[in-house]
């Protein structure tokens, strides 16, 4: 009975509804250890993520930026005096203005970025999952050199992502890159990868797929360990083919894990900042920008526009929330609950 940090969790109102003391108490007695187990995490997340997040939602209804966020701007003189002037255009509540400006395209390229983001997310996650599943299935079998294959295939994950991004950028360099050298060697004209939005996006997707497959592979490999081998044994006795075993045992057995990795993989890829930012830099002319990178460039170059950044943040959050609600509903139809 040693382990848990458990200073008994404060009797905060359970997130359900305020109830009569006796019920609250019963609930507390029954569940205190569960709450104790989740409390530390909840505190950290509340302070570091939820406070900024709710503040962000509020900011998206104001016009607050770096220049108008304080009521008075003070200029300190080196000789010791300080002059404070009232800020002539202090920030104010602007209602839905930011959303209107963003959604009507007055500021930024919201719809174009969203389109690119959706394509990017879908293609990346599909490739991650497909390739990761294939490799994990192979690596789950006993065979020679399995440990070596596993390590080699996981290496892309071990290199810091921005280094890999540079490596791929070199490979796709239009003049000096390996990709064009190979194309020329087989008699195909070199491609100006970054002069067209689709080839440009292609380079980023290749990079991200390469980066992300090892994670999927390892996660699924871990998931495959939950499948009791008795099932395979029985299936084998029944004469099921490898494909049948895969379809009827492996895939259903992987459901909890694959549901998690697809859901979170989608969210992460949607917000995957460094790859686009470093590999394509949004080229050509911002056409391969996804929502996060576009929002970052729009709001954080020069005087930072916090309200605009928050507006994009809230829009991204809403898109992903809608996605996860639908995802959850689709899963529930198949009997999965969470």
């Amino acid at each position: 009975m040693t382990t848990v940090t458990a200073d008994p969790a404060p009797p905060s109102t359970p997130p359900g509804r305020s109830a009569r003391p006796s019920r609250l108490r019963r609930s507390w007695e029954k569940h205190w250890y569960a709450w104790a187990m989740v409390l530390p995490v909840v505190i950290v997340l509340a302070v570091l993520i939820f406070y900024p997040l709710f503040r962000g939602i509020w900011l998206s209804f104001t016009n607050l930026n770096e220049a108008n966020q304080v009521a008075e701007i003070c200029t300190k003189s080196i000789t010791g005096s300080e002059v404070c002037k009232e800020n002539p255009n202090k920030w104010e509540f602007v209602g839905l203005d930011n959303y209107l400006r963003v959604l009507t395209g007055e500021v930024g390229e919201f719809w174009q970025w969203t389109g690119v983001t959706l394509i990017w997310t879908f293609v990346c996650v599909a490739c991650h999952f497909g390739l990761g599943l294939g490799l994990a299935t192979m690596l789950n079998r006993p065979m020679r050199l399995r440990g070596l294959y596993r390590v080699l295939l996981v290496l892309p994950w071990a290199v810091p992502a921005f280094v890999s991004a540079f490596a791929w950028k070199f490979i796709f360099n239009e003049r000096f890159g390996l990709a064009n050298a190979v194309l020329s060697a087989v008699g195909i004209d070199p491609v100006s990868w970054f002069a067209d939005r689709w080839t440009s996006l292609f380079t980023a997707i290749v990079t991200n797929v390469w980066l992300g497959v090892p994670f999927m592979m390892v996660a699924l490999l871990g998931g495959m360990q939950t499948i009791p081998s008795e099932l395979y044994e029985a299936a084998e006795i029944d004469g099921a083919s490898a494909w049948q075993r895969f379809r009827n045992i492996t895939l259903p057995g992987l459901r909890p894990v694959s549901m998690t990795v697809i859901l979170l993989g989608t969210i992460w890829t949607f917000n995957m900042f460094p790859i686009i930012f470093l590999v394509t830099e949004g080229q050509p002319a911002g056409q391969s920008e996804i929502l996060v990178t576009g929002a970052f460039r729009a709001a954080f170059e020069g005087i930072r526009n916090y309200s605009l950044a928050s507006t994009y943040g809230v829009l991204i959050l809403s898109i992903l929330l809608v996605f996860s609600v639908f995802y959850r509903r689709a899963l529930r139809k198949q009997g999965e609950v969470w």
Binding site: A67, I73, T75, K76, S77, I78, T79
Partner: peptide
């Protein structure tokens, strides 16, 4: 000018600099 407008810098007028 950007930092100065935000009040992040000392004004150097009147100093030896």
């Amino acid at each position: 000018p950007e930092f100065a407008s935000l009040g992040y810098l000392y004004a150097l007028d009147g100093s030896e600099l």
